[in-house]
Structure formats: C-alpha cells, structure tokens
C-alpha cells in the first residue's frame, strides 16, 4: 500500500479525465500523499510510467457533497499543473471530514478557493471582453438570414465549457465563433460546440468599431482621471485585444491639456 502511484495527464486534461483517475484511486483507498500527478509533455509521452491499479467494484465509492464537487470542477479548469494533486487532496480529505470545504482557513481549502476565484474572474473577464466582429459570408448554404460574427480572445484558464452557455443564451439569433489559444466555441443557432484544439490568432476588423470608439471617447469625463480604478477594472493583459484601449494615451493627453488650461 505504501507504493507511490504515478498518474500522468495531458496538460489540458478535463474534469472527467481527472475524475476517472481519482475515482479509481479512491476506490483503492490510496491516500493523497501516495499519489504523484504529472503533466504529460511531448517528450515523455512514449515512456510515461503509469501505475496500474486493480479494478475495484463501483459500489464501494465514497460520496462527497455537491459543494465539494462544484469546487473540484472549478479548480480543474485552472491552468496550474498543481490542480490535479490539490483536487485529489481535497477530495481525499473531504471524504473523511465532510465539512472541510467550508473551512476557508484550512491551507488546502484556501488554495482551492484561490484557484476557484481566479477561474471565476477569468470567466467574468471573458464575458466582458469578448468582442465580436462581423464577417461577411457569401451565399450561406442553409439560406438562413443569420449574420456571422467572429472573436479572438485569450483566456488564462480552461473555461470555454463554462462560458459557452452564456454566449449561446445571449447571441442566439446570430452565428458566432470564438477562437482562443485554448480551443474554440462555435454556435450555429442550435448548438454550442466546444473544442480544445488551439486556434491561430486572427486579426479582425469591423465597420461599427469606429462608432464604439466615438462612444468610448465621449463618455469619458476628462475632469476626473483615475487610472488605477480603470486598471483594476480592466487589467492590462486584456488591452491588446481591446481596440478602444489604443485611444487612451490620446484621451489622457487631451485631459491634461484641459486641466492645464
């Protein structure tokens, strides 16, 4: 029983993939400290050593509370390679102490909450900062009237499955495609299809963009400049994909001129 078990997973392994392994380990009663979770890289692909666990009947499975499953699902979306081990540790301990996940002062739970929070922020940012550009599509096959839109976005974590229903529920009457380095989401009016195949960056142009720039410039009140508040609401890392942020230097210069006058 004291042998170290090695589980090797692809870097973008989904919750389901992790769960299959975690269940097996749990059924064999293998404590978290005896499992090593590794991320598969291209080189060690062929030589990866997997420990084989005896199959144990489905029945003797521990159950954990819904809140715990939710937390695990969240942290499995995180991009940190530590998430697999942390998730199993939480699962293992929660099986023995059901109230565990409510104790935010526990170091494992604090770490899990931290990851969950980062994932939540990423989801929120994606809902905020995806920008669609219209694509003219010649002669649509189905003859449908739906217009086509495309977006390029760079999420930090593996959140496409979480955000897909939001976009599907919001932009139901148009066809859209969101491309990201972590996969894509496509909607054709009936179904949202998520892949984890990395996409190439696209440069997108849209005619309505200039009206948005006009709006962005005009709602700014030059009598109050608060760049810190702005940065905390709209972190720097998103700026490169948000066309309006290119206007900021000019807007600030204008505000400074007015202030001085």
């Amino acid at each position: 029983m004291t042998r170290l078990h090695v589980v090797t997973l692809p870097a973008d392994a989904s919750f389901q993939t992790w769960r299959d392994h975690a269940r097996k380990l749990l059924r064999n009663d293998i404590p978290a400290s005896f499992v090593e979770w590794r991320v598969r890289s291209a080189q060690d692909d062929l030589f990866a050593e997997e420990s084989v666990l005896p199959a144990v009947a489905e029945g003797c499975q521990r159950t954990v509370r819904r809140g715990c499953v939710k937390l695990l699902q969240r942290i499995l979306c995180h991009s940190s390679p530590d998430r697999f081990a942390l998730a199993y540790r939480v699962l293992w301990r929660a099986g023995r102490a059901p109230g565990l996940i409510r104790d935010a002062a526990d170091p494992d739970i604090a770490a899990a909450n931290h990851m969950a929070r980062q994932v939540r922020h990423d989801v929120h940012h994606m809902k905020s900062y995806v920008r669609f550009s219209e694509k003219q599509v010649a002669g649509s096959v189905s003859g449908s009237q739906a217009r086509h839109f495309v977006s390029w976005f760079e999420p930090e974590h593996h959140i496409l499955e979480i955000v897909a229903p939001f976009f599907a529920g919001r932009f139901a009457d148009m066809n859209w495609l969101i491309l990201t380095p972590k996969g894509s989401v496509a909607w054709d009016g009936a179904e949202a299809v998520v892949t984890r195949e990395p996409c190439a960056r696209e440069t997108l142009e849209d005619e309505t963009g200039h009206l948005w720039h006009t709006y962005y410039r005009s709602v700014f009140n030059p009598a109050r400049v608060k760049m810190n508040a702005m940065r905390s609401g709209m972190p720097r890392k998103f700026w490169k994909n948000l066309p309006e942020t290119g206007l900021i230097p000019e807007m600030l210069a204008e505000a400074a001129r007015r202030g001085a006058g």
Partner: peptide
Amino acid sequence: GKGLGSTESSGICHAHTPDGR
C-alpha cells in the same frame, strides 16, 4: 427563441474609461 440578448444577475462591465468608470 428568435430574439437577441440576455441578462445576468450581477451585470457586466464591458470596458472601463480612464476616469475609472
């Protein structure tokens, strides 16, 4: 449905201007 749009319980900010709003 045939429509466009949805609402979120807590609302979403889509951009921030340099006045922090």
